[in-house]
Structure formats: C-alpha cells, structure tokens
C-alpha cells in the first residue's frame, strides 16, 4: 500500500472519482489559472497553470474538496509564478490588450492608455506587491483567501495591499 504525502491511500474506486473531479476542476478553472498567472507576470502563464494542475492531481485529499482545490491551485500559481519570474527577462507571450466594452472611442483610447500605464507599472512591482494587487483588485479575493494564496497571515494582508498601492502610485508618478 502506498500512502501519499497528504495521507490519502491509493484505491481503485476513489481513484476514478478523483479523476472525474479533477477533469471537472480542470475544465472549470484552467483558463482562470492561466489568466491569474498572466496577471502575476508569468513569462509562460499556461505552463504555470499546467504545472499547478499536475501538482493538484497528486493531492487526492485536496481533490475531495473543490473549494480547497481552487485555493490550492491559486496558491500554487502564485508560488510558481514568483519562483519563475526573472526580473529583467520576463517575456510576455500574451500581452494584455484592451477589451471593447466602452462606447466612446475617445474614452476607450484614454482607458486603454491608463490601463497600459497601470499594467506596465505593475510589471515593475515586487512579486509580493503585484500579488497583493492582483488578488485584491483583479480577483476580488477576501482577505482570508489572499492570505492563503500568498502564504501570509490574515493580519498582514491589508498592509501588503497598502504598501503595494503606495509603490504603484510612486511608479505611476515617475512615468
């Protein structure tokens, strides 16, 4: 009998259930994880998301709880992206471009410019600061979810966000 790190014991029936849950989670959340990795500045967001899912696959206990699975995926994407970032060599294969959800073309141009400035400035933030802003403002996570994803205590989430906003504001002033 083999026992996984999380204490889950390999078993035939469980294994088929787990595979089906895994497939469901993959189809439901893979794109979101790719997007999260892109937001965090990963040079190859899809590769990061794939690796996160491979790691999830090995955790049968986590797979039993879909909510925990999403949290695990998010944390893994954050950690993998952080460890892969090379500060001067980030190659974005999927550069963000604007969405066409604004009526006025002039407004759209301004909005795009501002969004471009922001995303450019975000690229110069430290991994920690960028994570804080992405999770807070782009993923709308709760403080508890942010703390889990970033591997920090709940009490320090606000200060991370605040420092990140200051840093971003400072960078925008420079441009």
């Amino acid at each position: 009998m083999l026992v996984g790190e999380d204490g889950a014991v390999a078993a035939g029936a469980d294994s088929s259930d787990a595979e089906s849950t895994y497939r469901e989670i993959f189809h439901g959340h893979f794109s979101a994880m790719v997007r999260l990795a892109a937001m965090l500045g990963a040079d190859d967001p899809e590769d990061v998301a794939q690796e996160a899912f491979v790691r999830l696959h090995g955790r049968s206990r986590t797979l039993r709880d879909p909510h925990a699975s999403i949290g695990y995926l998010r944390t893994t994407v954050v950690n993998l992206t952080r460890s892969r970032l090379r500060h001067l060599a980030v190659v974005r294969r999927q550069r963000p471009d604007g969405a066409s959800d604004v009526a006025s073309p002039e407004h759209e141009v301004v909005r795009r410019e501002r969004a471009g400035e922001l995303t450019a400035a975000m690229a110069h933030l430290s991994s920690r600061h960028r994570e804080a802003l992405v999770l807070r403002y782009w993923l709308d996570l709760t403080e508890a979810e942010m703390a889990d994803a970033m591997g920090i205590s709940r009490g320090t989430v606000k200060s991370h966000v605040s420092r990140a906003l200051d840093a971003l504001s400072g960078l925008l002033e420079e441009t």
């Binding site: 969004a115 782009w138 906003l165």
Partner: peptide
C-alpha cells in the same frame, strides 16, 4: 487608483488557454 486598477483587469480578459490544454495536461 483603485478604480483604474479594477478597470485595468479587463486587459487580461483575452488571455486564453490553448484549445488542447486538456490533452497537454
């Protein structure tokens, strides 16, 4: 800043996964 940040999120709406992501997985 917070409003602009939220608005900038849409910049990533077009980031998509490969069609064969599941097979790759």
């Amino acid at each position: 800043l917070e409003r602009d940040l939220r608005a900038a999120r849409t910049s990533y709406d077009r980031v998509t996964a490969s069609a064969d992501a599941w097979q790759q997985n």
